[in-house]
Design a protein around this nucleic acid. Structure first.
Lengths: 230, 230
DNA sequence: TAGTGGTCTAGACCACTAG
DNA sequence: TAGTGGTCTAGACCACTAG
């Protein structure tokens, strides 16, 4: 299996960055300079650059050049949705409650809301053999015409009006804790049982917050996996 | 901010997949057909395809075409290393033990070892204000000349002999549990304290297992974050 | 104004898949 | 053998950054 030229160039540059022959924090040679160095056309250099950008070795700045980043060899791809992390199956999803609420001040801060709009709260329970093992609590800024009937409340179609075709963005954080009395009671467990908490903030392509979700899992039924890439 | 043609084409195709106008599991029209449809050159179509591949909408098959995948809108980028998830700082890293051991049968299975090679075990403690908050336990297949002195034992240079310049790959899984007596004692905590466990399997670019690591964190000092991408 | 990365065209040759 | 995606060349025009 012969390696393509652009991949060889990318590997060569990668190695130079790892060996600190190209200084982190500095600038890469320009594309035209690299064309001369490797004796290839700009298209080929740009394919190599695209690889290095994807793997976060360099960052392009229009009109200036490429800056060299601290190598980070620990990029993982995590494919997550609310019911993808259970270690048991089948998992049954049960809608508990859909409400239009006036947000609390804390919720407004979390949703980056400066006007007094209303918020939809969706609570959902995940069951394994009739035992509650997951609890999902979503807060989404309401817009007129948002679908609120059960069959239409699923991600991402609930946002489709705002974002047709574009990608929603999110930030996710995972932590573990002992359940407080309220969360424990939802799981019909004693207070203090370990739970994994996944908090997700959902944004539109421009970065505006559309909503957030907190999902609680009984720790023993939950495991999240990620794979490194390229 | 004007959108480029290839991005518009990618968005258009994305929408068609989401709307199921292009059938999941089927084939995309060929690149040449798409050139005609959108009236652009193949290079432009290929940039659009590259986006769709990256976001896992389609998969290229040389000589055949592109297959259409189930849309998965939940890709997150997780940048993880052993000391990146602490919620407190500064974290002090303390090497506890480096041993060359003969692996147990369970370890051999985990390391995909079929010959009887030896294994290096590295145990490390992470401290916050002298309190243990993390414990890292690595098992790496030994090769002659592997650096075992303290200053050289850090990822990824310990693997550098095998992998110069190439990327190491890994798989990572995150779960939470109550600490057993042994783990609790390391943290000078009572048994049952919630811990987050990150298990990492380290592979070379060809997919052979080089080692694995289990890292235990006191749950209250640990949170892992991921961002969605493109 | 000279140089940079961003985008796009037009065309070539290759290995691979399938009839 | 005709068609497909994979790679690469050669060249064009653009907006942007910085002296």
């Amino acid at each position: 299996m012969k390696q393509s030229i652009f991949a060889m160039i990318a590997d060569d540059i990668k190695q130079q960055i790892l060996d600190q022959k190209i200084k982190v924090g500095g600038m890469m040679p320009s594309e035209n300079a690299l064309c001369a160095t490797y004796n290839v056309t700009r298209t080929t250099i740009r394919r190599a650059m695209a690889l290095l950008i994807k793997e976060n070795y360099i960052t392009p700045i229009t009109g200036k050049g490429y800056t060299v980043n601290e190598p980070s060899l620990n990029n993982f791809l995590l494919q997550f949705d609310e019911h993808s992390g259970f270690t048991c199956s089948p998992i049954e999803s049960q809608l508990i409650k859909v409400d239009i609420i006036n947000p609390t001040p804390e919720q407004m801060v979390k949703l980056h809301m400066w006007e007094n709009k209303r918020v939809v709260n969706i609570k959902r329970m995940y069951l394994y053999e009739e035992k509650p093992v997951g609890f999902d609590d979503k807060y989404i800024i309401y817009y007129t015409g948002m679908p609120l009937i059960e069959t239409e409340i699923h991600y991402p179609s609930i946002f489709s009006k705002n974002t047709s075709g574009k990608d929603l963005r999110g930030e996710l954080s995972i932590s573990a804790q002992n359940a407080n009395a309220y969360i424990a009671s939802l799981f019909t467990e004693h207070s203090g049982v370990p739970v994994t908490v996944v908090e997700q903030i959902i944004k539109d392509p421009e970065g505006s917050v559309l909503g957030y979700a907190q999902t609680y899992y009984l720790a023993e039924y939950f495991e999240i996996e990620a794979k490194s890439f390229s």
